[in-house]
């Protein structure tokens, strides 16, 4: 079966020039069964050709999985007609990944702290918390349908 994922890789401004970055874009339909393949694909490209510690490799995998899951399930409501776009900007020192859905967006400040005793027994609400704990920087766009995460490789 053909994968529904769409991958684009390009180097900018020119191949191997100092300061150049590799840009990787993956688009996936909002199907939970596509999340793993997308995570594997983006992770592979993020790690290729650069030294990245094991700890950062695990963190990258976690935050990609959480951000893409949030976009597929909460942002796009698992509507397979809607797409999620993952863009990774790769330089030797760091990885910057944005994940954007087609949903109305949300207020990241309104998500309750999952470590509160009354929240600990809740099934949901840990994904964004994990992202915030595991990346060096996280930003949202104004609409709240796009998250940008930066990880230093060491």
């Amino acid at each position: 079966m053909t994968s529904p994922l769409r991958l684009c890789v390009r180097r900018t401004p020119v191949s191997a020039a100092p300061g150049s970055a590799t840009l990787v874009t993956v688009r996936l339909p909002s199907d939970v069964n596509c999340i793993e393949e997308a995570v594997e694909l983006v992770t592979r490209h993020c790690l290729a050709g650069h030294t990245t510690t094991k700890t950062i490799q695990f963190r990258l995998r976690v935050v990609l999985s959480e951000a893409i899951s949030n976009a597929v399930v909460r942002g796009n409501g698992e509507d397979r007609a809607k797409w999620v776009e993952v863009c990774a900007e790769l330089v030797p020192e760091s990885i910057r990944v944005s994940v954007t859905d087609e949903g109305p967006g949300f207020d990241p400040g309104a998500i309750p702290e999952p470590l509160r005793p009354e929240q600990l027994d809740e099934a949901n609400g840990r994904g964004l918390y994990l992202i915030r704990k595991l990346v060096d920087a996280v930003q949202f766009n104004e609409r709240g349908n796009s998250i940008c995460m930066t990880l230093r490789r060491r």
Binding site: S65, D121, R126, G127
Partner: peptide, 16 residues
């Protein structure tokens, strides 16, 4: 190899 936050949530649910 991996558990995501939904998996953690599922464990919380079955624990309850």
């Amino acid at each position: 190899g991996y558990i995501d936050s939904s998996g953690l949530g599922a464990l919380v649910s079955i624990s309850k």
